[in-house]
């Protein structure tokens, strides 16, 4: 699979926070989930790769090309949904569209109207009166109406109820049906990714912790439960994160085979993305 985005040694300082030597790539045809706790650097990363923040160092290539020299071509192939809408509240949807549309040479009015209908949006409604869910749907409509190949979204699901979040995931899967499409989106609601993500990138404190296929990541780790008597100086080392209560222990391991071999009478379960994420995130 080709890379649609390659980030190499990206450096960005922002006040006391900094992204350090960020290196990762996105594969074509994949939905990549960008996960991390609040303040880990997700939004800074997205804004920097989009050129909304100037980078301090490093290289960013979309579709194998530098943004600087090919800005127009690249921006035509990217659809973006950012956390804080960036809409003019007093405008109607139609007015807002007429500001956005000319920015893209391949804007497709029929695709736009299709999404508007599908999401039951009213073109003469004022943006200020949209609910959070409607606002997100409108943002997606604007992002997908110019045949973008790569959709980049920053926390599109935050503040939305489970029903709308689920609907959004379905929209993403629909979008992916066409060959050559890719999605990159950040979220701290990892349950959204269980169903749809192909790849997962974890960022913590401005550094990439892993960039791996979701299925492989979850297969490489396991959630182990059992009696406290099994926990000793030696077995503790098999776990990335271990929690004990008077009733037993619960831990995340990346040494599944060793645990299977050395510990008897345990329950081995498939971890959730959240379990794995928390095992790697440093507290405080």
């Amino acid at each position: 699979m080709k890379a649609v985005l390659e980030v190499n040694n990206l450096k960005k300082e922002l006040g006391s926070f900094s992204l350090e030597q960020l290196t990762f790539s996105l594969k074509e045809g994949c939905i990549t989930g960008f996960i991390g706790v609040n303040g880990s650097g997700k939004t800074t990363t997205i804004k920097t790769i989009l050129g909304l923040y100037p980078k301090d160092n490093g290289s960013i290539k979309f579709f194998g090309k530098e943004m600087k020299k090919n800005e127009c071509e690249i921006k035509n192939r990217i659809g973006v949904v950012l956390d804080e809408g960036y809409f003019y509240e007093e405008m109607t949807l139609k007015e807002m569209k007429s500001i956005i549309a000319p920015a893209y040479t391949n804007w497709d009015e029929s695709v736009f109207l299709n999404y508007i209908n599908r999401f039951n949006l009213k073109l003469d409604q004022k943006i200020a009166t949209l609910s959070k869910g409607m606002r997100m749907k409108f943002a997606i409509t604007l992002a997908l109406s110019h045949h973008a190949d790569l959709l980049i979204m920053d926390e599109p699901t935050s503040g939305l109820d489970p029903l709308i979040r689920n609907e959004l995931m379905e929209i993403l899967l629909d979008f992916m049906e066409e060959e050559g499409k890719s999605v990159f989106f950040s979220t701290h609601i990892t349950s959204d990714l269980e169903k749809v993500a192909d790849m997962l990138i974890l960022i913590d404190n401005g550094k990439i912790v892993f960039n791996e296929s979701k299925d492989e990541l979850l297969e490489r780790h396991a959630l182990i439960k059992g009696d406290n008597r099994l926990i000793n100086e030696h077995s503790t080392k098999l776990f990335l994160r271990l929690r004990q209560t008077p009733f037993g222990f619960e831990g995340i391991t990346n040494k599944v085979d060793q645990v299977r071999e050395q510990m008897k009478d345990i329950i081995i379960e498939r971890p959730t993305i959240e379990d794995v994420m928390l095992a790697y995130v440093k507290e405080g």
Binding site: M1, G29, M176, E177, E194, D198, M199
Partner: peptide
């Protein structure tokens, strides 16, 4: 089925079906 639609239906990664 295409690798994408199989992945969607089974809720696994497209990399797995590939």
């Amino acid at each position: 089925p295409s690798i994408r639609s199989l992945a969607n239906d089974l809720h696994v990664s497209v990399l797995t079906t590939k």
